[in-house]
Amino acid sequence: MSSGTVLYDIPGPAARRRNQVLGAVGTVAVVAAVAFVVWKLAQAGQFVPRMWEWIQYVRIQYLLLDALWATISAFAVAAVLSLAFGAVFAAGRLSDHAWLRAPASAVVELFRAVPLLVLIFILYFGVSRGLGIEISAFWSVVIGLMLYNGSVLAEVFRAGVLAVPRGQSEAAYALGLRKTQVMTTVLLPQALRSMLPTILSQLVVILKDTALGFIIQYPELLYQARYLGSQNQLGGPILPVAMVIAVIYIGLCLILTGISRLVDRRLHRGPRAEKPGTDQDTAVPVP
């Protein structure tokens, strides 16, 4: 038996056949469920041409493009601010000073516990009425997303740094590096590789949570889908519009996944091989 830790036994021939059978059955079940849903939608007349005529109108196409831009802009600003918020408060929670660590922990735990929709309501309705500060729908959505998701990302960053073996930081301190140098040159590059999938998942959450802006009439994709689906002159195409919006969200999430894979490949790419002809590759003849 090897000295490494084994989490599970390698499946044998019988187990592999069983897994293949279960995978095939699961695939057939999913395909059957999707086919049943499509069949029921067809029976309900959701695929007749009249229900899809709305997408041919140029004004509606521009309306969807404006909604897409509103969604992407809110997501982009909220994502950048959430990452910055998470990095700052993760550093605060990792601080050796209690006067920094305690307030940072309190802020993170507070905004992780408050539902995002409540935060958006407080920012859009409560702050303007209670403090007299007018906050637009855009910034209400963005700040709410930043406070909630930034607090979650702060815990992700903190957990990623703490997951790096202690020997790495101890060796760096033994070399005379300061804590900031240890964090930026030793711990973060290693922690980022393990944190990347979780960060991507949280960015996808930010993207999808922009849909909550429709409650305060922020004109993003879901708001416009609800508006178009309720138009009787278009036939009330709520399901066709919802399908189109779902496809748009899926496309955006796939783009995020592709970007994440590119970043992941760059992080895991080893040092480039030395070019031939360098001193290391030149053979020195032995006399």
Rank of each mutant, 00 (worst) to 15 (best):
1 M>P: 14
1 M>Q: 06
1 M>W: 05
4 G>W: 14
7 L>A: 10
7 L>W: 12
11 P>C: 00
14 A>L: 10
22 L>W: 15
24 A>N: 09
24 A>F: 13
30 V>C: 07
32 A>T: 13
33 A>Q: 03
36 F>H: 12
37 V>S: 03
37 V>A: 09
38 V>P: 10
40 K>N: 13
42 A>Y: 06
49 P>K: 00
55 I>R: 01
56 Q>E: 13
57 Y>T: 09
59 R>M: 05
59 R>G: 15
62 Y>P: 09
63 L>V: 07
64 L>G: 11
66 D>N: 14
72 I>T: 14
72 I>F: 15
74 A>F: 07
76 A>W: 02
78 A>G: 09
79 A>E: 04
79 A>R: 01
81 L>W: 02
81 L>C: 06
86 G>L: 01
94 L>M: 10
101 R>W: 06
105 S>N: 11
106 A>K: 06
106 A>N: 07
107 V>Y: 07
107 V>F: 09
113 A>G: 07
114 V>C: 03
116 L>D: 05
117 L>N: 04
122 I>R: 05
123 L>Y: 02
124 Y>F: 14
138 F>K: 00
141 V>M: 06
143 I>G: 04
144 G>S: 02
144 G>C: 05
145 L>C: 05
145 L>V: 06
146 M>D: 05
147 L>G: 04
148 Y>V: 05
148 Y>W: 04
149 N>V: 02
150 G>I: 02
150 G>W: 05
153 L>G: 10
156 V>W: 06
158 R>P: 14
158 R>T: 12
163 A>P: 13
176 G>I: 02
180 T>W: 14
182 V>Q: 02
184 T>V: 10
189 P>V: 00
190 Q>Y: 09
191 A>E: 07
192 L>G: 08
194 S>I: 12
194 S>N: 14
194 S>V: 14
199 I>N: 03
200 L>E: 05
201 S>L: 04
204 V>N: 12
210 T>Y: 06
222 L>V: 14
224 Q>L: 12
225 A>C: 06
227 Y>R: 11
230 S>G: 15
232 N>D: 15
235 G>D: 05
236 G>Q: 00
238 I>A: 11
240 P>V: 00
242 A>F: 14
242 A>M: 08
243 M>C: 11
245 I>A: 02
246 A>C: 13
248 I>E: 02
252 L>V: 09
253 C>Y: 01
257 T>D: 13
259 I>C: 12
260 S>Y: 10
264 D>H: 09
265 R>S: 12
266 R>V: 08
266 R>Q: 08
268 H>Q: 14
270 G>N: 04
275 K>R: 11
276 P>E: 04
276 P>C: 01
277 G>L: 00
282 T>R: 11
282 T>F: 06
284 V>E: 11
284 V>I: 14
286 V>P: 10
